[in-house]
Every structure is written in C-alpha cells, then in structure tokens.
Amino acid sequence: MRKFVLIGLVLSYAGVLLLAPMLALVINLLEYGLDTIWAAITTPEALLALRLSLILALCSVMINTVMGVLIAWVLVRHQFWGKRFFNAVVDLPFVVSPVIVGYVLIVLFGRQGWLSGFPVQLAFSTAGMLLVTVFVSLPFVIREVMPVLAAITPEQEEAAFTLGASHTLTFRRILLPILWPSILYGIVLTLARSLGEFGAAAVAGGGVQGVTETATIYVYRALQDRNDVGAYSIAVILGLMAVGILILMNWLRPQEGKKHVD
C-alpha cells in the first residue's frame, strides 16, 4: 500500500513539475485558433529564427559530438601535466552564466577586443553565436562518455588488436558501439541545451531579426512586443522539438542498448 502512495506521490510531483507547464502552454495557445497560430509561425521572422536555432543546434551537436568524444578520450586514456586542471575546466560552461559567455566573446572579438584582428567576424555574427552555443553545450557529451569509457576494460580493444584490427578500426567497431548510448544521450542534452540557449546567443549575435535572432530570442522579443501568439507558438514548437528528440532517442536507444543488457 505504501508503495502505491509513493508511486502516486512521485508521479504527481513529476507530472506537475514536468508536464503541467507544457500543457498550460499548449492550452493557452490553442485558444487563439489554428489559423492565427499558423500565421504566427509562418511569419518570415519566426521561420528564420527557428531555422537559425536548428542550424546552430545541429552544428553545435556535430562539433561537440566529435570534439566531446575526443576530449573524453584524452581525459580518460592519457596522462599529462595539468590533466586535473583541464578536467575541471571542462565544466566551466556549467558554471559561467551564458550572458557572461556572450559578453566575453564581444570583449575578445569585438571592435576594441584583444583579438579584434581575428579573420572571421565573430562578434555580432552567426559564427559567434555558434561559438558560444558550442561553448555552453560543450560538457554534455564529454561528461556522458567519460564514465563509460573509463569503465571499458582494455581487453576488448586488446582482443581486437590481436585479431589484426588497427586502432581506428577498433575504435569504430568495438568502442563506438559501447559508447554509442552515452554519446546519444550526450547528443540529446547538447541538442536540448543548444536549442534552449538564450543569453549567450542574444549577446553574441546582437539579436538582429531574421539574421541573428534564434527561436528563444524570438520568443523573448515577441513577449516584449505583446505578440503572445508568436511567443507561445514558437515556444510550443521548441517544446515539441524537445519531446520529439526524446522520443527519437528512446526509439534509437533500445536497438543499441538491448545488446548491452547483461
């Protein structure tokens, strides 16, 4: 009996905390009617903002997946001077406020910045927004992959070596399938974090409509403009994307994960 009370308690807590806001948002939105919503979503500004968010998130996922696995590899498998420091620094994006991150980019690469001579225009550009998005979502893949990588005993790789497999082939055929669930999870988090990024992208990009305005900046601005339909519509789309990502991952995961159940 006590078990059911606990289950009920946990479910209602999680339900209220996780689902209620999403539901409220959707109900709030539907009051405007589908035509109004469709019109709000299909304004060029909203579409461009969504597109920019997606492009930034996907690029950030690709960069952070490749680099994240690489960094995790170096941190787990190699010994070097300053490793502990480097390992701690990886978490920096978790503790630094995104607005500060954006501001630092401007300070470094802005007109009077130390690195203003940098050949690529970073301040107030999509490139700069990508840089800060990559920065804020950097730790996820690393932190997901590291413990799994550390738990892999060397024998699996050694077995592959004795069977003639090169280091790259061994990584691709033996390690990657083992790491894949953690990489996927890291990708989900990276994607979610990148899509949700607001402060750093807003400061780094300057928030120019249709150019450096992401979906979250659009939502913020729409709220300021009293364009509630626009804000809610894009917010719901972002929410649906998040749900979609979760479903996609759940669908991908068992196929890989099943083989790892012991």
């Binding site: 024998e155 699996q156 050694e158 077995a159 055929r173 890989e256 790892h260």
Partner: peptide, 11 residues
C-alpha cells in the same frame, strides 16, 4: 589470444 574474461565483443 584468449583472455581470462574472454573479452567477447558484447554487441
């Protein structure tokens, strides 16, 4: 080479 824990590729 046969390892003590066999080290079969689990996947």
């Amino acid at each position: 080479f046969v390892f003590q824990n066999y080290s079969l590729f689990q996947h």
